[in-house]
Nucleic acid binder design. Structure first.
Lengths: 153, 153
DNA sequence: TGCATATAGTACGACATCGCACTAAATAAT
DNA sequence: ATTATTTAGTGCGATGTCGTACTATATGCA
């Protein structure tokens, strides 16, 4: 939870930075989820999107690492995705402890439809916040993310 | 939940932007909460911080609006803060439906101690991510936040 | 080979967040 | 003035996230 008031410098600068980031995360998540079918959260879609972009057949643990959430959280998300028939969990032939996550045809179809739906939101945003403005933020955010990630260990 | 992989442009640019923001929120929240006493969440501290900076004696609803969370969420947070003795809820003399939230001496003391503790985290960050870099991100993030906020209605 | 340790995944419980429904009080409409 | 509507706050249930503990398998080491 983050407030949206300003003011302050010095150490307060970093507070405000994380405040802004926190509130943007909150608002963007709500906006995205309003575009997704009922009961489908950004966390669900993000996993599908990850697999569509980088390929499926990964282990749950590698996914939890990619999203930097506890493995129990990823396990829960995958269970929901499997219930909806969007993914399949198959045994990992190389490690009997492990499983591999594969997208189903239904999952791919849902992803495509969701991308279209979310594209509407993106279109609106692009008109008031240009791709150049968005791109300008990326290097700083990536650096910040990598620093926090590295410290986490 | 957001992944941390890169690549892509066009509409994908905005996906990546919100991905980065989502993961930074996740990591920074975890880092902050590691610095707070057990069971104290950033959402709790943020409310105290808000009142210290902008004054107390506000209504729960105005706080929920400032943080843009549902009023039930703010109600829950305030209940916890009151249980810890950091705030007091008094009746609003101007509106018998309403209450006003005041910080206690214990609340102010806790805030001061927490600020010191969080300052340590900030100090580390400032050495690898300069105030100039942080400041450079602010205008874009503020604009993005305001746009999302305005659209929300 | 045999044992200690590390790793993948799950079960379970704690809790924060949120939506919906409800009560009480204020405000608007007639 | 009376009634309808809006607003402030709470109660309650659903669910996502996360920490701890556990099982099964894999790996390191003697």
């Amino acid at each position: 939870m983050s407030d949206s008031d300003g003011a302050g410098e010095g150490p307060g600068l970093y507070f405000r930075l994380f405040n802004e980031i926190g509130i943007i995360e909150q608002l963007s998540r709500a906006a995205f989820e309003a575009r997704l079918p009922d009961g489908v959260l950004v966390s669900h879609f993000s996993v599908l999107n990850h697999m569509m972009r980088l390929g499926d057949g990964k282990t749950p643990l590698s996914l939890s690492s990619a999203f930097q959430v506890p493995k129990t959280t990823m396990s829960h998300t995958l269970m929901l995705l499997e219930k909806r028939g969007w993914i399949e969990m198959r045994p990992n032939p190389e490690d009997k402890r492990s499983k591999l996550v594969w997208m189903t045809e239904a999952g791919r179809a849902f992803w495509q439809q969701a991308i279209g739906s979310l594209g509407g939101e993106m279109g609106w945003l692009a008109e008031v916040f240009s791709p150049e403005e968005a791109a300008a933020l990326m290097p700083g955010l990536e650096k910040l993310r990598k620093l926090l990630d590295a410290r986490r260990g």
